[in-house]
Design a protein around this nucleic acid. Structure first.
Lengths: 226, 226
DNA sequence: TCCAATTTGTTCGTATGTATT
DNA sequence: AAATACATACGAACAAATTGG
């Protein structure tokens, strides 16, 4: 299955990404709720909920008897997007041991030097007694944090991922979405030392060819340039 | 009555009117979706829709397992609403030792539980060699972080202040400013055990009489209610 | 004008999952 | 452990609006 969370959320994410990727023309017919229900294998109720949520967001317009359309960009609430920098970087870390604290300190100082604000969240969820990590729950929180970061239109995401859970799908999807109208936002994978490009620590940075600030990269244990 | 139209619309109108008539107390239990479904003779789906719409309007708050409540009057500005509540809390900590990490973890988890995003910044500046704190510089960073938090219109500020530097002036000033249009933002000082109200750990929270979520307060080592 | 097809709008009843007390 | 209450999801049905024959 996809990643996590409610179906209507995933549908919303997917559609948002597609609209951001300019796969639809404003004013042109979008998709019917029946197409949605077939394509995602959900009930009509769920499809309708996703569409209505996106209408509430101002992304779509639905006209009874006609269909569902992509809203006029002018009507879409203030999305200069690529031009405007939020000045915020999200840092999503799993766990708060000594090493993670070190990483966080480095990230904080790197952001502070550049006048960036820092969203911090910890995706680790520990089982009450054992102290062990609860991986499924942590993964869910990681996904949720990524999702929120995208919705907040952060300029960059520093991700210290949940152990042993690369989950490239979410990341790619996130990258596609966060990009918005600006072309070529890149995923900067960790260096080749890592087996998975996401297993050590990685960074998404918004904008074409944008590189992660070196001090931040260094804090993540990524020696070389990304 | 019977203003024609959808049932969920009529339910919304009725509930809106009742809230406006002050028939419910903010924070007090409102109605369950089951009560709605009985009282209006509609299905649960319809009741849920009405309630969720009112949540989107900022009039109600629903908490799973608890119930549906009337939102804080300060939070519902009758407008699209999202502009007023940022859903962000700033956490300004000095230093990142084991204890600070513990505090930060608690704050993060408290915020996460409530769907709040967390601005994190560390005001400690270490002298390159000694490892000692540079107090004047740290104080400056703390002030700057406070001001930025105010400018960002965060909903709350968690402050673990620079050691031995209460500096009530800035804090009071911050409190006054952070209030913005909403009157009576309060400073919630630490309990009497502390010599200075700001020496242990304190919290600003936006809105009149607003209290810090207990789990966050607990993470700050503030046992009792603020 | 009427009809038929398409598409959204609303509502129903039920079921299951999850969080809180 | 049980009761309560919200969260999500399903599938079906009918109503209302639009378009084109």
């Amino acid at each position: 299955m996809g990643t996590s969370g409610p179906k209507y959320q995933r549908i919303k994410d997917e559609l948002r990404a597609e609209v951001a990727r300019d796969e639809y023309v404003a004013g042109a017919p979008f998709i019917t709720q029946n197409q949605l229900h077939e394509r995602f294998g959900v009930s009509s109720t769920t499809a309708v909920r996703a569409l209505n949520d996106l209408v509430a967001e101002g992304l779509l317009v639905r006209r009874r008897g006609l269909g569902t359309f992509v809203a006029d960009p002018s009507d879409r609430t203030a999305e200069p997007a690529s031009a405007h920098r939020s000045g915020v970087v999200a840092c999503i870390i799993s766990g708060q041991g000594p090493y993670q604290s070190e990483v966080l300190r480095g990230v904080e100082s790197g952001c502070s030097e550049r006048g960036l604000r820092l969203f911090f969240s910890d995706s680790a969820v520990r089982m009450t007694d054992t102290g062990h990590a609860d991986h499924p729950a942590s993964l869910a929180r990681q996904d949720q944090a990524l999702h929120q970061a995208v919705e907040d239109r952060v300029d960059g995401i520093i991700l210290y991922p949940v152990r042993g859970a690369p989950d490239l799908d979410v990341l790619n999807e996130t990258a596609g979405t966060s990009c918005g109208p600006s072309p070529g936002a890149g995923i900067c994978p960790a260096p080749s030392t890592a087996t998975s490009p996401w297993s050590t620590g990685s960074a998404l940075y918004r904008g074409a060819g944008k590189r992660l600030p070196t001090s931040v990269a260094h804090a993540l244990g990524l020696g070389g340039p990304l």
